[in-house]
Each structure stands twice: as C-alpha cells, then as structure tokens.
C-alpha cells in the first residue's frame, strides 16, 4: 500500500450544534487506496463527521480537506470527487438496472459513451445481461447492495463513503461485498467505511473509534488488539465504550 498521498486531511475538526459538541477536535488522515474504518457507538458523532467530509455540512472550526478540496469553500468540487452509499438501500426500485446506472452516471456528468461502456461492463461483471431490463425491486437484497456499491463508484471517485453498507445482509453476501470493496481499493479508490460488525472492522487497513464526539483510538486492527491486550476487535470496542461510561 502506498502510504504517501493523503486524500483526506482532518485537523482539529469541531462541529457544534448550539451548545452540543458533536465532533470534538477530530484529527486524522486517510491515505490513497486505504480502507479506513470509522467506528463508534450510535450517537458518537460519526454521521456528523461523514456529512462534513461529504460536503453536506459546514464545520464549525478546523482544517479539513477532502480529495484536495477545502470543506468550507469547495464543497461542490468535493461532491464531484466522492461516491456515497448509505445503510438505507439507495437504488430506485421502480427503475430497471440499466436505468439506475444511466441515472446515477448521468448526474455525475458522464458522457453517453462512457455510460454505455460502464453499464455494459457492470452488467457483464455481475452476469445480469438477462435481467438488465428488470426493475430493481425484483432483485434479491444482496444483489441490490452489490449493484448499489458498483454504481456509487461508477464515476471513479477518489473516495467512496460507505455508511453501514452491509446492514441487514447475510454473512455470505457480506463477504462478497467486501471482495468488491477490496477490488475498489486495489483500483486506487479510497474507502471510508462505518460499520457495527466488528468482524468487518478487522477487514479494514486502519480503524478509528469515536466515543462521545472524540476519536479515542486510531491504528491498524492488529495494533489496537495488542494495545488493549485483548483477543479481538469486539473487546477493544467494548473496552473503549465502557471506559467513558464508567
């Protein structure tokens, strides 16, 4: 892995809603082609941070750059260079596979020729040529999820944000989904992923764990397990969460 180029740089990110501090001086970097796990209990401030990194929300203070663009003034440029997929399923159920591909590729400004190429490639890759004119709602959930991911990176973004992408999916499909994530990372797309599954967390190159608006830990999964003297990520997570609750 090339650890030189930083695609996300965050220094002392603070986001306040009135008196409530949702993000309290977050500092971290994410490198190109890395799979970066962004963990934390519900309400720890993950979503707020992701929204800022996606250009949906303006931070209160701190220096943030995403894909080389400033999170205060260049949100439009950020949006063009990222992909996003959320825990809620996000393709249109009443559109066919091809129409969904065309639509999403279209809003990212791909040319007709590119759209045609990409969509042919995608349909071939998933062996969907006999189903390409079927409505999305006729597909099983696992397939939808995989398609949604492929469509989220159809415009070759520098970074793709995955907000609990595997919620409600069976373990086999989850494994296949992670194969797609690795494939994307190998192709140079940085993957920024949140999850509640600790076995998934161990698939990441590096992890950050947020507790109450702060980043409590940031390292590779192996190092974190060593550092906290436990057997697996699950216990690391519990230890950190318990520490603040006590």
């Amino acid at each position: 892995m090339v650890k030189k180029e930083k695609v996300i740089q965050v220094k002392n990110l603070v986001k306040k809603f009135g008196d409530f501090v949702a993000n309290d001086h977050l500092t971290f970097d994410v490198y190109k082609g890395e799979i970066f796990g962004f963990l934390g209990a519900n309400g720890a401030g993950k979503t707020t941070a992701i929204r800022i990194l996606c250009g949906l929300s303006i931070p209160t203070s701190g220096d943030i750059s995403v894909a080389g663009f400033d999170a205060y003034t260049q949100t439009e440029n950020i949006k063009k260079n990222i992909g996003y997929m959320s825990q809620k399923f996000s393709l249109y159920e009443d559109l066919t596979i091809t129409e969904n591909i065309k639509f999403y590729a279209g809003i990212y400004g791909l040319s007709d020729k590119e759209i045609k190429q990409k969509s042919d490639k995608l349909i071939q890759k998933f062996n969907l040529s006999d189903k390409k004119n079927k409505l999305i709602k006729s597909l099983p959930l696992g397939w939808k999820q995989k398609l949604a991911f492929s469509i989220a990176i159809i415009h070759n973004p520098k970074i793709v944000f995955l907000d609990e992408p595997t919620g409600g999916v069976d373990p086999i499909t989850r494994r296949q989904f992670w194969d797609l994530i690795y494939e994307a990372a190998d192709a140079g797309i940085t993957v920024f992923v949140t999850t509640h599954y600790m076995d998934e967390a161990e698939y990441c190159n590096r992890l950050s764990i947020m507790v109450d608006g702060k980043i409590e830990a940031l390292d590779t999964p192996e190092n974190l397990i060593k550092q906290y003297k436990v057997d697996n990520m699950d216990q690391v997570f519990l230890k950190l969460a318990r520490k603040t609750n006590a």
């Binding site: 996606c54 250009g55 949906l56 439009e76 949006k79 063009k80 990222i82 996003y84 997929m85 959320s86 809620k88 996000s90 393709l91 249109y92 999403y104 809003i107 990212y108 400004g109 989220a152 944000f161």
Partner: peptide, 9 residues
C-alpha cells in the same frame, strides 16, 4: 435516495 442526491453534484 435523497441522501445520495444531496451528496451528488
């Protein structure tokens, strides 16, 4: 899907 649209350009 609204989230996706908002994150898009």
């Amino acid at each position: 899907t609204m989230e996706i649209l908002l994150v898009s350009p």
